[in-house]
Write a protein that binds this DNA or RNA. Structure first.
Lengths: 209, 209
DNA sequence: GTCTATAGAAGGATAGAC
DNA sequence: GTCTATCCTTCTATAGAC
């Protein structure tokens, strides 16, 4: 299938994905999207009516893809540690391929928190926790992970993989003066993050009362 | 000193700080800034010439303030652990008072990485590391922190405090359905983050060869 | 220094031909 | 479905009075 054969709506959507991720809702220009899609502005409106609707379509799609990466935590037959290692490998690889995505999502969500609700409102987080609790009863006890620290642990796990990409502009600048290569750093991070979290959890064993 | 006594330039600057942090460079409107400062648009241009220059002034100032919070790591006479605890208390308290700051800075920097260079280019990160190395030789050996994993550890430390604020829109949404209070969570995080990092580091002792 | 009024450009959206 | 031409609003920036 050549570039020209692709359906117009799809071409517009792909172009919009790139431009919105790069410039954000406010910075994006319909003209830029039209140019990148190889069509004219009027067609954008023909297919998506307004900039808002086009943005909403793009946002729901790409944010959904990012969140879907958290799904493996529900698969059976893996230890907590293996799930964690699997998650970091998958999630970091995905963000490496979509480097603008984390900052884009964080930013647009902070300005319009209602957008994320559309994606998360169908997820029953309490049931999700109960599933994990059932699957990993012994490990949770061993690491002393009680319900009250679950939010702290979950956010910490997400932070270690998302933050390097969200803060890439700063980190890369500092790395330059240290002679550190960002891509190599990210590759190493898949394992480091898993080790780091497991280290923190294992250490809770000794403080276990 | 009443609101009216304050110098005009300062009023404009403060108003611009708020509006830019809330809407970003592209979303901010000069009219909004003028209204909030209680003056008219023309005066904005009289004092700062263009929107770009006004933005640049605001950005350099607020980003500088955030980075300054990393300074305590250089103070003498504290153990690594005490510095870490001190840092999280200070940094999280600061972000609690400026909740829009992290996402604002991350976003604008990713779109214009050159902006951060203006702030960081005068910092000699290599010398900074040498100072820490000298101050904490034994602790670094004990935790097996060699130069090659310093970037991983530093980013992880920053991630645990910055990410909850940068991703607040998402986190707060999920917390709502779990019945978790964000402010309480953040208060707890000051200690949790320090414990978590120390746990991960202490666990490196056992894997020490 | 501060204001009102307005120029001038940019960008989202639509009308209408094909 | 796709295009060109254009409308209309919004926004930055400036001119000029006080």
């Amino acid at each position: 299938m050549t570039e020209d054969d692709r359906q117009t709506e799809e071409k517009i959507f792909d172009a919009a994905s790139i431009v919105f991720q790069e410039k954000g809702m406010d910075g994006a220009r319909m003209q830029d999207i039209a140019n990148r899609a190889g069509i004219n502005k009027a067609l954008l409106h023909y297919y998506f009516r307004t900039k808002d609707l086009l943005f909403e379509a793009v946002f729901q799609k790409v944010a959904g893809r990012l969140f879907a990466k958290f799904a493996p935590v529900l698969s059976e037959g893996l230890t907590l540690e293996d799930k964690l290692r699997f998650f970091y490998r998958e999630h970091i690889t995905f963000m490496k391929e979509n480097p603008r995505l984390p900052a884009f999502i964080l930013n647009e969500i902070n300005r319009h928190p209602e957008r994320i609700k559309k994606i998360t409102r169908h997820i029953d987080f309490i049931k999700l926790w109960e599933t994990i609790e059932k699957q990993h009863k012994e490990e949770l006890e061993k690491y002393n992970i009680t319900i009250d620290i679950v939010p702290q642990v979950m956010v910490s796990i997400a932070a270690l993989s998302v933050f390097p990409f969200a803060a890439r502009g700063i980190i890369e600048g500092i790395f330059e003066s240290l002679g550190v290569d960002f891509d190599k750093y990210i590759e190493d991070r898949k394992e480091f993050a898993a080790d780091f979290i497991m280290g923190a959890l294992k250490n809770r064993q000794s403080t276990n009362k």
